[in-house]
Amino acid sequence: MKVLIVEDNDDYINLLNTEFELAGFEVVLAHDGLEGIEQAKNTNPDIILLDIILSKTLGFSLLRQLKKDDQIKSVPVVAMSNYSSRENEEKVNSLGAVKFIDKGSYKPSQIVEEIRQILERGKSM
């Protein structure tokens, strides 16, 4: 299982990296939106974990770009943010994300668990 994590906070991305690796995932990291698009195209991830508040490209527009690209659009995207709001949640859902995760209420280990479940549901379908 390959997960692409797009996140601009170094500490947090390292933390997620460790958790996913310990859970047996293959992890690809991208520290900004541009790198995110590139890695999505080059590494064929099974799922993308995307922070929607990125400094260079806003996560929303990145999500839109990912869903427009024929090569990537079938890859499920889980959006996450420190700004949890119904507005953000509805927005990412309407843009095609499979789930919205509030970083404040999910521990990294719980995020790993969520991702695993989403991938298993996808496989059984």
Binding site: N9, Y12, L15, L22, N82, Y83, K103, K107, P108, S109
Partner: peptide, 28 residues
């Protein structure tokens, strides 16, 4: 919301890291 972000981000990191240390110390 900027302040909330600035406070939540480091706290999220502290919590995640301490959880990691507590549960997975041996594997690290």
């Amino acid at each position: 919301s900027m302040i909330v972000h600035e406070l939540r981000t480091p706290l999220t990191n502290i919590r995640g890291t301490s959880e990691l240390l507590k549960k997975r110390m041996q594997e690290l």
